[in-house]
């Protein structure tokens, strides 16, 4: 029972990081219809950027802030250079471009940072675990959870209360109608990419604190795909719930099934869930069923 609780709790905490990255993914999909397969690399870039700032001696919160800023700039550049000219092109073309982007980013990362695993040194979070009742949790998980929740909260408030957030939601709902009110689609697309880069960056940096930074953080970033399929491709709450569920399932699978296999269940299991989900409920838990008026 304790193992179970332990697994579920760490699962929720790691899952909150997936939720953050998944939210960025959903945002791009909702606002511009781009199915972004380079999300893992965005996560990876975030991890390396924050690591670099940290090794330069910046305190971790400032390194995170710097990652956010760099992320926003990279997001806007990516949209401007690669995706703007593709507006109105067939879906497959755009997907292929994001695949290309993922290889491009990966190459760039290896060029700049090499392929060795690096760790945050000195460690950002103390090693002593925290006791929560019967369960023992590493501090890094706890703080990652808090950071992810805080950022999710900020983003939720941004969408609800600011005019830019509302404009992005409007654009996701009905592009033509939003344009008829003078809202610029270019602005919305750029903002979506900037926020996605920022969310993935923070996610990557937190994941890097847990596992160390190497290419495999990129694979973790790719877990957004099962998360968003589970939650529904165009649902922001779905992304959050989906991310957390994937985190928990992944942890449980790793904890209980890994002993029967040579390993790797943890990596595959989310994608098994994704496949099942696509068979049973292709719109996900919270995907849009068009509102029908009675």
């Amino acid at each position: 029972m304790e193992t179970f609780l332990q697994l579920v709790l760490t699962g929720i905490m790691v899952g909150s990081i997936y939720a953050l990255v998944a939210l960025g993914w959903v945002l791009i999909y909702k606002c511009s219809g781009v199915l972004n397969l380079a999300m893992g690399e965005l996560t990876l870039i975030g991890a390396y950027v924050s690591l670099t700032f940290y090794t330069w001696g910046l305190p971790f919160p400032l390194a995170l802030l710097a990652t956010l800023i760099i992320g926003a700039i990279l997001g806007i550049l990516t949209e401007r250079i690669f995706l703007r000219r593709l507006i109105g092109e067939p879906v497959l073309t755009i997907i292929m471009v994001t695949v290309g982007l993922s290889f491009f980013f990966r190459g760039l990362i290896e060029l700049i940072w090499g392929t060795d695993t690096r760790v945050f040194h000195p460690p950002v979070f103390p090693y002593e675990p925290v006791r929560l009742g019967p369960v023992v949790i590493g501090q890094v998980y706890l703080w990652s959870f808090i950071a992810a929740l805080a950022l999710l909260g900020i983003l939720a408030a941004f969408f609800r209360y600011t005019r830019w957030g509302l404009a992005m939601q409007a654009m996701a709902d009905d592009e033509m109608a939003a344009m008829s009110l003078g809202i610029s689609p270019k602005f919305v697309y750029a903002a979506a990419w900037a926020i996605a880069f920022m969310a993935a960056g923070v996610g990557g940096s937190l994941l890097g604190n847990i596992n160390g930074v190497n290419i495999s953080v990129g694979y973790l970033g790719l877990l957004v795909l099962p998360a968003v399929v589970l939650g529904g491709l165009n649902s922001i709450p779905g992304a959050i719930v989906g991310g957390i569920i994937i985190g928990v399932l992944q942890n449980l699978a790793g904890g209980y099934l890994d002993r029967f296999t040579p390993g790797g269940v943890k990596e595959i299991f989310p994608f098994v869930v994704m496949t099942l989900m696509l068979l049973i409920k292709p719109y996900g838990l919270f995907g849009w069923v068009r509102i029908e008026r009675v």
Binding site: R163, L166, A167, Q169, A170, D173, D174, A177, A178, L181, G182, I183, W288, I291
Partner: peptide
């Protein structure tokens, strides 16, 4: 904008 409330719809107009 079907998923926004009436007032949010109006606020989008004031962007």
């Amino acid at each position: 904008f079907e998923h926004l409330t009436v007032e949010e719809n109006l606020r989008v107009g004031a962007h």
